[in-house]
């Protein structure tokens, strides 16, 4: 079944014809060519595909593209103001060496931003670790990811994002 979908992705209108079974992540990667959002598993656990839909972090591998009809989607590509001005979470990941191979990074960053906001910019280490339940990283051992998120929370507050 072919269906037309239209949504806003990173502030710009995006539309296309998809199959009913097309996942949001497939729409982003294959139809829009936005390959920053990754797929690392087929059972909704790894979190490499996390994006924001209407301001909430979700796994784009576990939602049909048609379910996002009319939604506001934010992906890793839409975070930075410019190449020189990264989002404070991106900056904190760089400062704290919170990424190695980079594959889990887009999902990590998107989850982390949502986490900071949901906790009103107030986080401690156990909370960060618990809140990362839906994101797997095989490289960093999480140590520097946790550090980066703790560092980003006040930076996001200060930047008003």
């Amino acid at each position: 079944m072919t269906i037309s979908v239209a949504m806003t992705v990173n502030g710009k209108p995006a539309s296309g014809k998809v199959e009913a079974r097309t996942l949001l992540v497939q729409f982003l990667r294959e139809h829009l060519g936005m390959t920053g959002t990754h797929v690392g598993c087929d059972t909704s656990q790894c979190g490499a595909c996390v994006v924001h839909v209407d301001g909430k972090s979700i796994k784009s591998c576990t939602i049909l593209a048609v379910q996002a009809e009319g939604s506001n989607v934010l992906t890793i590509e839409g975070l930075a103001e410019s190449a020189d001005k990264l989002h404070p979470m991106q900056e904190a990941f760089r400062e704290n060496h919170a990424l190695q191979c980079g594959f889990c990074t887009p999902g990590m960053v998107m989850s982390a931003i949502d986490m900071v906001k949901r906790h009103d910019y107030q986080l401690d280490e156990p909370t960060v670790r618990r809140e990362l339940e839906g994101n797997l990283c095989r490289c960093t051992g999480y140590h520097n990811i946790v550090k980066a998120i703790l560092a980003a929370a006040p930076a996001m507050k200060a930047a008003g994002v």
């Binding site: 979190g47 996390v50 972090s57 979700i58 939602i63 989850s111 949502d114 994101n135």
Partner: peptide, 9 residues
């Protein structure tokens, strides 16, 4: 239940 992303859906 699940993880934060699952709880959002």
């Amino acid at each position: 239940i699940g993880d934060p992303q699952v709880r959002n859906r």
